[in-house]
Design a protein around this nucleic acid. Structure first.
Lengths: 232, 232
DNA sequence: CTAATAGTGTCTATTAGACAGTATTTA
DNA sequence: TAAATACTGTCTAATAGACACTATTAG
């Protein structure tokens, strides 16, 4: 690196693509921007990195989500960095982007806690034009989520625990956008050895009750916040 | 994003993990730092983003590599962003990191053009302690390279064209660090349909000459500089 | 019993590893 | 011819999809 005989004046932000499952479809959480640029428009939750408060960019992402949405998601992973002169009208900027998963129950509770309609959900299959390069960020996040879902337990983080095998199966289908053979999927899922059976059975209609599962503690929840490119 | 009622003063750099194959082992290109911090030590080629010159972080990475090593690598991909308060003694910093591949012939030619021992090679299996968090960056890059090599033509970019099947085979083995069955590898490689035969045959010892190949133009070389998460 | 959903077994087509065999060159 | 390397064919074990089957509940 050269000596700084010229001055850098680059904006550094974090943005989070927070996915959830609503009405059997993947949705992205969007917030109405309180300030310029693009005040009043729906955009990804994001914000400046605070040098004094954030030890690193992950901490910044966690803080932004907690502050703006009230959610601390069970899964959060760095996605990509979008860094160029044109993406923000204020000038050269870096967005260190993350993607996150949360179940709808936690999401709705947070929405109540924060006091109503703080954020909106948008179906990923019918995404409105977003400010900055946020459409591109969502596209990259969606691709990453689908790619990783083929060999990981990621979609399980979209479900409230405990959940049934059928719920997991449907969730993978909704995320991947294709039908998955039940039997083959069952083998693959349980061969991953990441779920554990729960006590109690699902009550429902006039049908055979299903076994309940949760993610094993060692793979579960906020542990994922640490390693940034772990397998699951 | 909130209004900037406080001031950001974050250093934004790019760093590149440039791999090559030397003496049948993966090596990383390192440069002796001309300035503080860590002046005189070997480190990854990197530098400040120049807001005036670089349209985006990829352009910054290309410029840094060209300027410092004389190399424009055939493959260059964003790796990860390392962004925290502690990695650089000068303060809160973001390193948008890239990884790149180049063959040793191009590398040596660049070394001559630049005028001698501008850079060093370090075997990835015996990596010295590096300044900043560069060891961690190399680790992440190495993992990414190995993961992607299992289902892509990435290791081909470590070879000078044209090359033989045997060379490709050995290169994959050196990158992955395991023996690969020749016959199965052959099927897999050609099923990818990314190589094309060349005129002429390799001359060598008193043996049957091998067919020569190159990467098909549509998958080849600096096209890769564009799409940032393409399959190959 | 029936209806409905949960869960299992089994056949088959495809794939990857192992490895033996054939082909083509120079000396 | 022999020696060396390039390339191909075939057997087999593991895998994934398709789909038929059994199991367990409420009414």
């Amino acid at each position: 690196m050269d000596s700084p005989d010229w001055v850098q004046n680059i904006i550094v932000t974090v943005d989070v693509v927070l996915f959830t499952l609503h009405a059997q479809c993947l949705h992205v959480v969007l917030m109405r921007r309180p300030n310029d640029p693009f005040a009043g428009q729906l955009a990804l939750p994001g914000g400046y990195v605070h040098q004094a408060d954030d030890v690193d960019s992950l901490a910044a992402a966690v803080r932004v989500l907690r502050t703006k949405t009230g959610i601390t998601p069970p899964y959060l992973e760095q996605l990509y960095s979008f860094a160029d002169a044109a993406r923000d009208p204020r000038g050269w900027s870096v967005s260190v982007s993350y993607f996150a998963l949360v179940d709808e129950v936690v999401l709705r509770q947070a929405q109540v806690d924060v006091g109503g309609a703080a954020f909106d959900l948008l179906n990923v299959n019918a995404l409105a034009p977003l400010p900055f390069d946020h459409n591109r960020i969502v596209d990259v996040a969606l691709k990453r989520l689908r790619d990783k879902s083929a060999y990981s337990l990621l979609p399980c983080y979209l479900l409230a625990e405990p959940f049934t095998f059928a719920q997991v199966h449907q969730t993978y289908e909704h995320v991947m956008g294709v039908a998955l053979d039940k039997s083959a999927f069952r083998r693959k899922l349980f061969d991953m050895n990441v779920l554990q059976e729960c006590q109690g059975q699902r009550i429902g209609g006039a049908h055979r009750p299903a076994q309940l599962y949760r993610v094993k503690p060692e793979f579960s929840r906020r542990l994922q916040l640490l390693g940034h490119t772990s397998g699951f």
